[in-house]
Design a protein around this nucleic acid. Structure first.
Lengths: 215, 215
DNA sequence: ACCTGAACACCGTTCAAGT
DNA sequence: ACCTGAACACCGTTCAAGT
């Protein structure tokens, strides 16, 4: 399976791993991570909830497959410029865009464990870029880990926050006495406004520092 | 409530919000985030599971209170040096240490939403440090957000990973053909080894870049 | 070979009844 | 005023029975 099936498959086509993964993507996109249950999956595919267990050992194995699909597309549409720092930036932002196209699925998959098959190829590609710019072996390995964690952790948090409002923060901070919280009062209009800007700011910090560590 | 009660309170003391939060901390520390259920909480305190609802509206309100306690201690034991970059580093590492003393609780609280009361004071203190070093208003606000997200996101991921082995990653990568994944093969011994080193490396990248943005 | 459906051991939460 | 206990609407998963 390489693309998301568009049609709502209410007819009872033959059940398969791919059909279950596709239904998972559809439900997570439309109704959020919490909506992906065995019973919901069965209803989506016109099948009993427990038919699932003919194709996957348990729910975690389904999430592995779904996560594998999500990560496999992390470089889709990526165009490199030849400039090292700019390309690291493009790679990360491309992955982020891909993941935010499926926020519900991302949140769902984040609860899963273990490595995805497609992670090996992704790791190889990022390591290749990092080392090609002159980052030595150990530096590249650590940079890879930090960049990966930064991308995944922040984007999962953003995907989770998509459904809840950030208004509670702003309201809670707005009510605080300015004499007791002077810095907070002075910065209140800047906090919790734009999660995309926050992500890019931190990413630029990381890349700037890495850029200076190249030999 | 400012300290963790040590005693296993099997006797039926009068139920209260503090007693429920203390039991939550104890259970999460000892048995993990998943063990904190209404029925388990009731058993811990010698009380019916539903007695809980006399003191909290729902489970999320309990997690808010527990998170508030956790964040309130983020600066406990912190000693500053007077050097700006070193102090930013100490602040973040102090919070991380505090959170990793209660990994189960951290994971549990991470599923909660909304701001904690103690976050205001913590934000004020971090903003104060950032601005005192010469970071301008907007730069300080964004730096605060990135540092906060970095600390929380990475540490939650580490706390989650504490209970699962990282061995699957290393094994999966070790089996890959070296000619197809040359960079991965060359770096396999460096990946997924030390999460603490990874955290500090990324933190140093962020602080280095911020240090150079001071005026 | 694959799917069904009852069943089990769990969740969080509500509400009438007890004291 | 506070706690109990049955009950509800959910979970993921197992297993014997169907076709």
């Amino acid at each position: 399976m390489t693309a998301i099936p568009q049609a709502r498959a209410e007819r009872a086509a033959p059940l398969s791993r791919d059909a279950l993964v596709a239904a998972t993507i559809r439900i997570a996109d439309a109704e959020g991570a919490g909506a992906v249950t065995m019973r919901r999956l069965g209803a989506e595919l016109g099948v009993d909830a427990t038919a699932f267990y003919r194709h996957f050992r348990d729910k975690d194995e389904l999430l592995q497959a779904a996560g594998d699909w999500l990560v496999a597309g992390a470089f889709d549409g990526l165009e490199l410029s030849g400039d090292w720092a700019e390309d690291v930036r493009r790679m990360v932002l491309n992955g982020r865009r891909r993941y935010l196209e499926h926020p519900g699925l991302l949140v769902l998959v984040a609860t899963s464990s273990g490595p995805f098959q497609s992670e090996a190829a992704a790791t190889e590609r990022v390591l290749d870029l990092l080392r090609s710019g002159g980052l030595e072996r150990e530096e590249a390995a650590r940079a890879f880990e930090v960049i990966q964690d930064y991308l995944i952790s922040f984007t999962v948090a953003d995907a989770t926050a998509l459904h809840e409002s950030i208004a509670p923060w702003r309201e809670a901070f707005a009510e605080l006495p300015a004499d007791e919280f002077p810095n907070l009062a002075a910065s209140a209009d800047l906090l919790y406004v734009d999660r995309e800007a926050r992500f890019r700011y931190g990413l630029d910090l990381l890349i700037d520092a890495l850029d200076r560590r190249r030999t």
